[in-house]
Nucleic acid binder design. Structure first.
Lengths: 349, 349
DNA sequence: GAAAATTGTGCAATCGTGTGCGCTACGAGT
DNA sequence: ACTCGTAGCGCACACGATTGCACAATTTTC
């Protein structure tokens, strides 16, 4: 028996890793009291709480997240799936997302990034790490990730994508944004309007296009050109070159900013002036849209608002997993810059 | 006693979460056998291993990472501290980093992003989640993160920053890169060379400047202008405006690409031609440097190689924490584009 | 002044997995 | 026939924290 009696202090090295037991011994209380004291349980007296928190601070003790996660069954980790990071829109979104998650004590674990679909390796961590939730910010959904979330009953919110399956969604009102862009161009008396689409099978691109077409139809116009730009600068550049060569548009609406910037450079390459010869409108309002060479008129996505709502939905569902799916769409906002002619009623000012 | 005898099957809902015990019961073996079978322990016969792996696959069983982490004391999580994501360089780097980590079965958890220093909340997860390692990719080091890694004996590698403290570092050879840029400009017969610096207290900016000065000195020249651009587009723009107004340079070397792009737009704003009136050279080779309007001549950072070496260092130190610090610096590569005049010996071709 | 209510703590089980050590069974060696 | 070696597997504990319940100490109540 005495062999086991005090295995208590085997450590000559002062403090390997302080555990709850380390603190409890120093404070002369039980581990449970330490645990409760640190998380603000009201049953613990202020006196002992003070002692415990002081000791914890002194020794740099923080509860081990894995041990806690094992028993509470929540890890504090939120999985993130991101669209292409080469698009600054997602990079900026991710930065905000990280800050807002940190504010509610959650940490983001990047599961996947890039447009391609997710292999089964990529989604393993969702169950391995008992994630509390998952945020998918990508125009194209890897349906596998969504399925994994669903079978694991994991709260999931998609940003910037309208769901085909039953779940939570926060996005910019892409249709309305498309209408705005269309009305802006029509208001500036453009007649020959062309569209540059994003990647195939993305609801964002499709909805923005529908909105544009709606506005055109209302003005008894039709698209004079359509090309695909794959949501990249190079794609937008090539698409614009094609449009310029074939359909001679006097205005181009690109489904996102990166493509619009490519289109602008293609237009300049052809020796045309912006906006005198051609107007260009984008969608997103990334930082580069403000660069002096571009001064891109665009429909700004309300990124901060979208994140706010997405996290609210996620938190609700972490507390009550039985809540049903909900879709939120937030209006974008026109940012008038110099890449598009102003509507006549405004330019009168 | 019979109350506890078989608490075994309380679940009418078929499979809540399969655990090692679920599989072990189905296979008719002990949990330890399941554990060993799945991780390839040679002591388990091929027959039982086949049974176990089949059952695991059928029920979608994967070991719980938290429980495993608790006992093995390794979480499979690597902490990431990133510089400003508004700089596309870091966004691109992060994307690669994620892929390479996934390939070795590690997952990235973003601890902090952005230039500001880390508060103590931000570094908590390092010890909470028992991270296996930490990668700091930022020009400015939050020394707090480094200190936390050091006291926790956590393997840490810094990318793109030369350490002041004893640790591992992988970076581009910024000094040599500065020399290259200088020689390029001097070879093109530039006489009035100015420099746009990054943020204060960043070794990257300082080393690139030193290299430039070295090349100039060798040619008996001196800098005609110096301004700070804070590693942003707007900063580079403003810095260039100041330089143009005061020191009339015929070439500008900016400490990174984003500032160089801002400088280019400032130069055009003033009605000057590039490279006829002024050459511009950047550093990094971000995607935007290839955009048609800019065609930026720059020193490319070998991002993939840097990540390869950084992960190698990290993995070594995860296996053997006592290895000492090591610094690796990799040569950058000149990318000749159109924003800078070619050296005479090249333009003769 | 005894019983009851209240307050503050400790005990012990639990989460799911990994691992040192011991046990069984089987074939071989003498 | 007895021992020995080996292959294959299970027992039981550890990892570090949380939490329901029991319990001791103190105060309140009649």
């Amino acid at each position: 028996m005495e062999k086991m009696s005090d295995k208590a202090e085997p450590a000559p090295t002062a403090s390997a890793k302080p555990t709850v037991r380390t603190i409890s011994r120093l404070a002369g209380v039980s581990p449970s009291t330490v645990s409760r004291a640190l998380k603000g349980d009201p049953r613990i007296s202020e006196k002992t709480r003070a002692v415990v928190t002081a000791l914890a601070a002194e020794h740099g003790y923080t509860p081990n997240a894995m041990a806690r996660g094992l028993v509470t069954r929540t890890s504090g980790v939120v999985g993130i799936v991101l669209g292409d990071m080469k698009n600054p829109f997602y990079a900026e979104l991710f930065e905000s997302l990280h800050e807002r998650l940190a504010a509610i004590g959650k940490y983001p674990m990047l599961l996947h990034v890039g447009g391609e679909t997710l292999d089964s390796e990529g989604i393993k961590p969702i169950q391995q790490y008992q994630m509390d939730g998952c945020i998918i910010a990508a125009a194209r959904l890897s349906s596998k990730a969504a399925a994994t979330c669903a079978t694991n009953q994991l709260p999931m919110v998609m940003i910037n994508r309208v769901a085909r399956i039953h779940s939570c969604t926060v996005s910019c009102d892409n249709y309305a944004g498309g209408v705005m862009a269309g009305e802006l161009l029509i208001g500036a008396k453009h007649q020959r309007i062309a569209f540059i689409a994003g990647r195939e099978d993305t609801s964002t691109s499709e909805d923005r296009e529908s909105g544009l077409r709606r506005a055109l139809r209302k003005a008894a116009l039709d698209l004079v050109g359509w090309s695909r730009g794959h949501y990249t600068y190079e794609g937008g550049f090539a698409a614009a070159e094609e449009l310029l060569a074939t359909s001679r548009p006097d205005a181009i609406f690109a489904a996102n900013d990166i493509m619009a910037l490519g289109a602008i450079d293609a237009i300049y390459k052809r020796g045309l002036r912006i906006p005198d010869d051609i107007s260009v409108i984008g969608f997103d309002d990334i930082r580069q849209a403000r660069w002096r060479h571009y001064e891109l008129t665009t429909i700004a996505q309300p990124v901060e608002a979208m994140i706010t709502r997405a996290l609210a939905l996620l938190v609700e569902r972490m507390e009550n997993p039985d809540l049903s799916g909900e879709s939120i769409s937030i209006q974008g906002e026109v940012r008038l810059r110099k890449s598009a002619r102003l509507p006549v009623e405004l330019s009168a000012d």
